[in-house]
């Protein structure tokens, strides 16, 4: 097992190097010059000012040299100062990490609670209208774009009904420790973020539950005279949950990635929104730190998934 982990971590190195090169190249080669962008229209701005700023941000060096500079410093934990905020990029990301993780975890909990419930329900009521409704909802959950649904939910629940806030982390005048207010703000974005996962989980659970229910040990359980509830929840569900658990690692990474759109719609101040806005502003240090951070998380999530898989299903041996 230890060897497996070490080997996987070693494999991650070339992956991350590749990602760093691609991120760096895309950021630099996309149209637009960050200095010209943020100085457009500045009164009295001169060519000397431009040259000075280009030098101050190290953008006058050849690209390969800029890349080496960046990687060297990044390995020491310094991703460079943001062009806009004038603070160290990774530190600024970590300030927003909490919001993203909370959103992702809330979405994960919603996915499991709702997805598993719907999946089991659909399996137990196979062929009934309940099964059909859940299937339609599942397809819709997959198909509906998150940004659109987010806007619709804002209009319905925040503007028309005024039940929930539409934007941000906390209401004005609320303390950082006001959990209830925080939960009210979290509900809509977490739900929209969870939707795809709910669709996936309900489908997996339906298939797995049906599969397990047709197996010999379930028949044996029935034959022993166990109650239906015990058979379903005590035996069938536990086995059907294996793929759900193993999917967790990958889903977490997907959630953090998916948060990019959701955070934008709900003005949720997380890593996704921050990186997205930095990309538009061509704030290279933040974009590079954001992408490297998310990529590392993704790589670690897949490793976690493989390990969890081996752990919950002893039939799988890691090599």
């Amino acid at each position: 097992m230890r060897e497996f982990v070490i080997r996987r971590l070693l494999y991650a190195i070339p992956t991350l190097i590749g990602i760093s090169i691609i991120t760096f190249a895309i950021a630099r080669l996309s149209p637009g010059d960050p200095i010209r962008l943020f100085t457009f229209g500045v009164q009295n701005f001169t060519q000397d000012d431009y040259n000075r700023l280009v030098h101050a941000y190290g953008l006058d060096k050849p690209l390969p040299l800029q890349y080496v500079d960046w990687v060297t410093k990044a390995l020491q934990g310094n991703f460079g100062d943001s062009f806009i905020y004038h603070r160290e990029a990774f530190t600024m990301l970590t300030e927003r990490l909490g919001a993203t993780l909370e959103l992702a975890i809330a979405a994960l909990i919603l996915q499991i609670l709702i997805g598993v419930t719907l999946g089991v329900l659909a399996a137990l009521r196979r062929g009934s209208w309940v099964d059909n409704v859940i299937r339609v909802l599942g397809v819709a959950g997959h198909a509906v774009p998150a940004f659109w649904l987010g806007q619709i939910l804002i209009i319905v629940f925040a503007i028309n009904l005024r039940w929930l806030p539409s934007q941000g982390l906390l209401g004005v005048g609320k303390s950082q420790t006001d959990v209830l207010d925080y939960a009210r703000h979290l509900l809509l974005p977490a739900f929209v973020l969870a939707l795809t996962g709910i669709a996936i989980y309900s489908r997996i659970l339906r298939t797995e539950t049906l599969d397990v229910l047709s197996q010999d040990f379930i028949r044996t359980a029935h034959a022993k005279g166990l109650r239906e509830r015990t058979v379903v929840y005590g035996h069938a569900l536990r086995n059907a949950l294996i793929p759900v658990v193993t999917a967790l690692g990958g889903i977490l990474a997907t959630l953090v990635g998916g948060a990019l759109v959701i955070e934008q719609v709900f003005s949720w101040p997380g890593v996704g929104q921050f990186t997205f806005q930095a990309a538009i502003a061509k704030d290279y240090p933040i974009v590079q730190a954001g992408v490297m951070f998310t990529s590392t998380l993704l790589v670690l999530s897949y490793l976690l998934r493989d390990l969890t898989y081996a752990f919950v299903d002893p039939r799988i041996k890691v090599k």
Binding site: F38, T39, F40, G41, Q43, N44, I84, Q277, A281, K282
Partner: peptide
């Protein structure tokens, strides 16, 4: 075109840059 009104970047971020 006063200095403190020239946040072209952040304007652009939002929803289609309002230079003006």
């Amino acid at each position: 075109m006063k200095q403190h009104r020239t946040s072209r970047i952040l304007f652009a971020l939002a929803a289609g840059a309002l230079l003006v």
